[in-house]
Amino acid sequence: MAESITTYDKNADAAEVSKKLRAARVKRENRQGLRKHLFLGIFALFMLYPLLWMLASSLKPENEIFGRLSIWPSEFIWSNYTEGWMRLQVSFTQFYSNSALVTILSVIGNLISCSFAAYAFARLTFSWSKFWFALMMMTLMIPYHVVLIPQYVMFLKLGWIDTYLPLVVPRFLASDAFFIFLMVQFFRQLPRELDEAASIDGCSPYKIYWAIIMPLSMPAMATAGIFSFIWVWEDFLAPLIYLNDIQNYTVPLALRLFVAEDSQSAYGQMFAMSILSLVPVLLFFVIFQKLIIKGIAMSGLK
């Protein structure tokens, strides 16, 4: 009895101390907060400059973009946006829907297939696993340009040229080892006892993947989701090689049609459309980065 009371008291003390500590920390953090905001804010200006510059350029008359003039446009050419949208043979509505299709399918494909492979590498034992892992890492290291031609020939033989299949199918087959390795590193950080306990309770590896690993890996999955969205959305080399008909072009490919090295370009319109092409990326980023923060609630499980 006496013992249990002391224990209780001890706990109470600890709780009290912890409470005080937290209060002190909050105070200190508020004080520091202002300084932090100042620092972060000034720093953010450096980060923001290119966007402001692009925004300004998207509203400038064509011959002002390259001069040594101020960032402020002498007159605002809003028509860069409206005319830019319709300038090319096919309107940007089409390019956006093409890009959206490719990107959404690719993100889904990446998340599913890469998390599968990562789960195998990080949590399951099977023979030759080290060998396959090394090969997977190797695919990260090879310069893309030398496999471009054999890959093109392969997709040509499959009859996939000028379709989205060469862009999407590999993503369902975990072609991007970056994400596998990323997820492996995160999965390996989860306590082993979780799967062991579940396995004793009769959970299959499939159930463990879905019911334990996935929910606990939201920060990693959200990070992978953000990256794959951005990278696929901005990818330009693969669409350049595999898409022929302008009707099938994605947004980054279309953006490059505005600019010619040796003749008249349409820079204002290019900048205007570039600004618009950032909107989906930023939206996706803002939504998904919330999931990274949510990680903290989950980690309470540990």
Binding site: F116, A117, A120, L124, F126, S129, W132, F172, A174, Y206
Partner: peptide, 8 residues
């Protein structure tokens, strides 16, 4: 199980 997950 390992190879099933690795298969894609």
């Amino acid at each position: 199980p390992g190879y099933v997950f690795l298969s894609p």
